[in-house]
Structures are given as C-alpha cells and as structure tokens.
Amino acid sequence: MEESKQPKYCKYLRAKNPYGMLEGGENPWMIPFESNTICWCIKSSGASGPDNGLVHPDKCVEGRSCYKPAFD
C-alpha cells in the first residue's frame, strides 16, 4: 500500500472547529485548517505543548521534541 503523504501528527494533538474534532495521529481528516480552529495538547492540557511551543497541526509533527507517534 502506498504510504500516506499526510503529515504524521502527534498522538496528543487535538483540534476542534465547528465541524468536528481532529485526533492527532489516528484520523486527521479535518483539513484544511481554518481561522476558528482551536488546538490543544492532551498531554499538557493546553494551547502550549510540553516544550512550551505552540500547539498546531503545522507544529505537532515528527521532529518536535515532545512528538509522540500514534503507534509506537
């Protein structure tokens, strides 16, 4: 099977906008991002991640120090 070209989001990312909730890693269907989308990290329970950086689908991807994949 061809590997998905979508970014691999951190499993702790959550984002919500009026048409639903994105769960990082598992089912990132809620693209495109919009100006009213709220993002938070499950692990830090807030808008800044464990590394004090901004939580956002652009940011919560492989390479960030606090990133955790959906499946180890």
Binding site: N17, S35, G46, A47, H56
Partner: peptide, 9 residues
C-alpha cells in the same frame, strides 16, 4: 484567543 489560536471572524 489569548495563548491559543482560533480568533478569526
């Protein structure tokens, strides 16, 4: 939206 995003119109 303070420390968060989502402040569009």
């Amino acid at each position: 939206a303070g420390v968060a995003l989502g402040a569009g119109v």
